[in-house]
Amino acid sequence: MKYIVLERHPGYVVVLDEEGRFLKAADRQYQVGQQLDAILPMRPPRRRGRAILFPALTAAACLVLLALSAVRMAQMPYASVYMTINPQVRIDVNRRDTVLTVEGTNPDGEVLTEGYEGRGKELEQVMDELTDRAVEMGWLHPGGQITLTLDAEDGDWVAAHSDSLPAHLNEYLDETLQVTIRVDGGETGGQEAAIPVGPPPTAVPTAAPTAAPTAVPTPVPAGDSGYGDSAYGSSETQGDSGYTAATAPPQDSGYGEGDSGYETPAHPEQDSGYDSPEPVEDSGYGDSAYDSE
């Protein structure tokens, strides 16, 4: 795909691609009229469903009585899945395993979920997408571990998902990475089962799990989750739907971990107070602030 630079602004350029798309992208010292082979596109703003609001209101007025109880049930969180790699996120789902909320529950988790819209999607899809993100962002490597903690009042739900979720993740990751998936029962108690994806090609197989797929993984370059294009953040990225209609913004309370020390500076030149102690290359492994249990 080729792009023509149409206009320069401080911080971005507007380009035109060969299919008629006008896009904003990062400005790497381009000139107007220049032709580019690749761009770093800006991610489109999350739509709040504004265009759909009015027709939706009229339709809702007609159906409100009938729909009320059904809607209420669909909106009530039925269970939560905590996914922990180093970042930890909580995924709330309703009875039908449709995701209601995705929230980072530690600072890395907030970075991981930044810009991600999970609401309305299937639980397994969200777990896949967040896992992909974690790989992309360097938190998950081959040999790494994902811990799932399931929290629900319904013991049957926990039991069923303790099998199905790791199995699904195993299958999803099988082609790209070899990670261990651990399941904690959380509040309702449950069994712990270490389920490796499959024996590494040359090493000794890890301990035999109780219920694990036995697919043989194919060796694949580390960290290549399939986002092979050089365009950064292209709009085909699965993790960033951005277009979910009429969704409320995720319940993002910012840093909710007792960090009251942040003062917005009067002048932007001053330090923002944002603390990121990790150096550039740090994937976060071995971070002692991470609570696994």
Partner: peptide, 23 residues
């Protein structure tokens, strides 16, 4: 809802830079 703007901006910047470095 996202809290102070500059903190949110810092978060977004860091997130994108991490993405970029990974690629």
């Amino acid at each position: 809802m996202r809290g102070p703007f500059l903190r949110y901006a810092a978060l977004t910047i860091r997130s994108r830079l991490i993405d970029y470095h990974r690629r």
